[in-house]
């Protein structure tokens, strides 16, 4: 994944370097500007078995601030915000690979450095008995739930 570029960022930003299991790194730039998911909007995406994005809906594109062709083929962690500890996603892969539904409150990072909170659900796509990919739906949640999640993630 490419590093985030200062020219894409709106407002004052901080830097964070993510290191991934495959030995690669990504520099992300983030601000404290929040965008709220519009009422009634659902963000939908699909990923392959490696977590690579294969399809997104219009709400995903609008909220992430990326173009569709910048998203397709990228790992879902393109949206990972530095405030989201790895432990917050802890059992996601295990749950969905065991064909269970995963839910969680997630702070996502936009291309412009801003963020948005969602309540995310991920399930496995099962075809002829095999897992062929994953579908994720993200929706707006209450400020109370966001505050609880923020407090909890600071302890992880």
């Amino acid at each position: 994944m490419k590093d985030m570029m200062p020219d894409d960022i709106s407002g004052e930003y901080q830097e964070h370097m993510f290191s991934y299991h495959d030995g690669t790194h990504r520099k992300v730039l983030f601000t404290n500007i929040e965008t709220q998911l519009p009422e009634g909007s659902l963000i939908v995406s699909r990923a392959d078995l490696r977590g690579i994005i294969t399809d997104v809906n219009q709400s995903f594109i609008e909220m992430s601030a990326y173009h569709k062709d910048e998203l397709i083929g990228q790992p879902h962690c393109i949206l990972r915000h530095p405030d989201m500890p790895a432990a917050a996603f802890g059992d996601l892969w295990k749950m969905v690979q065991q064909r269970n539904k995963w839910h969680g409150y997630v702070k996502n990072l936009r291309k412009d450095g801003g963020f948005y909170w969602v309540y995310a659900t991920v399930i496995a796509n099962i075809r002829n008995g095999d897992i062929t990919g994953f579908t994720s739906v993200r929706r707006r949640t209450s400020r109370t739930k966001i505050n609880e999640a923020e407090t909890h993630y600071q302890t992880l």
Binding site: P38, E39, G40, S41, L42, V44, N57, Q58, S59
Partner: peptide
Amino acid sequence: IVHSQIHV
């Protein structure tokens, strides 16, 4: 007061 925007 609100419309869903699911599209799919």
